[in-house]
């Protein structure tokens, strides 16, 4: 089976001469949740807009469901729902009216039952008679999601869907995303809340300055780049690291109450046993031990710094 989306050697140089995408190749698998991460201006929105037909690529090809986005744009686009990053809504319309437009535009006959279902799922049903301009920012964001879902897309792009959405609703939204995935929808999202990607995504791509620097299974990425830390909580404050403990790669926390040992989970020996022996022999007494796995955020920051 072909990929949901196949991006091959894609480049984009804007009219200003700025190169926003540099030779990006990426395959999105059917039914996965793919998180695209990267700092501001990395090219995430540009990439999404090319796939959706809003930005014209300078070089490279993209197929969606096996259909070329240029030659066979009708077939390609009708599979896609897009929730844009910018809050651009039809201020004077009601949510159902703007959803009907979306559904029609994507070539689907009217279906009030679907509109109702989506509005209810997004807790917008009570607002069905309000003009969009009377809704709050978070509600407007959900109207955009409702528009994208109005034509029952097989592939959903969420460009920073959780910006400006409160914690409670964010949870609901991610629940909805999980349900969509369970029903077979492929989801590509960007977010600056990395814990979100960590929780939701099957795979993660990191883009920086227009280049895709990593694409990896999330678990694999965590394993590969993940560092674990052992934290030794001390009984008494230390002003300096004892001589005997130098050479173990230990650092003393600023308050002098913790020793922090960073180690690689993949390594044959972690060196923990020798370390703890050394600590005991040095006469340092501790009251507790804990380990900490570095988060996707730490990994991400590390990658972007390198890039």
């Amino acid at each position: 089976m072909t990929h949901a989306i196949a991006i091959s050697h894609l480049s984009k140089t804007y009219a200003s001469g700025f190169q926003a995408l540099k030779d990006v190749s990426l395959d999105i698998r059917h039914g996965e949740i793919f998180a695209l991460l990267g700092p501001n201006g990395a090219g995430k929105t540009t990439l999404i807009n090319v796939v959706c037909g809003i930005v014209i690529p300078s070089a490279g090809t993209v197929t969606v469901g096996g259909h070329d986005i240029v030659k066979d744009y009708r077939a390609a686009r009708s599979l896609i729902g897009l929730v844009p990053q910018e809050l651009t809504t039809d201020a004077f319309e009601t949510p159902p009216a703007t959803m009907r437009l979306s559904r029609g535009l994507f070539g689907k006959p009217a279906n009030p039952a679907i509109i109702e279902k989506v509005l209810k799922e997004l807790s917008l049903w009570d607002k069905r008679e309000s003009r969009i301009m009377m809704l709050s920012g978070g509600m407007k964001r959900r109207v955009l999601i409702a528009k994208a879902l109005a034509h029952e897309p097989q592939i959903l792009f969420l460009d920073e869907p959780s910006a400006g959405v409160d914690v409670e609703l964010r949870k609901d939204m991610w629940q909805l995303v999980r349900e969509l995935r369970a029903s077979g929808v492929t989801i590509i999202l960007t977010t600056h809340y990395i814990e979100e990607a960590e929780e939701m995504a099957d795979r993660v791509g990191v883009i920086n300055k227009g280049e895709l620097i990593v694409v990896e299974e999330k678990a694999e990425l965590m394993r590969k780049l993940g560092r674990k830390q052992l934290i030794v909580e001390l009984r008494e404050r230390l002003n300096v690291l004892p001589e005997a403990l130098a050479g173990h790669g230990l650092t003393l926390s600023t308050d002098g109450m913790q020793l922090v040992y960073t180690y690689d989970t993949k390594a044959e020996t972690t060196g923990i046993t020798t370390l703890l022996d050394a600590v005991r022999n040095a006469g340092v007494r501790f009251k507790d031990l804990q380990t900490r796995q570095s988060s996707l955020e730490d990994i991400f920051v590390g990658l972007v710094r390198q890039g």
């Binding site: 959706c52 077939a75 390609a76 897009l82 437009l101 535009l105």
Partner: peptide, 14 residues
């Protein structure tokens, strides 16, 4: 002007 054109551009309409 308001940006809602994105939807027309991304829709399968000629």
């Amino acid at each position: 002007f308001v940006g809602t054109i994105y939807e027309i551009l991304s829709a399968p309409v000629s």
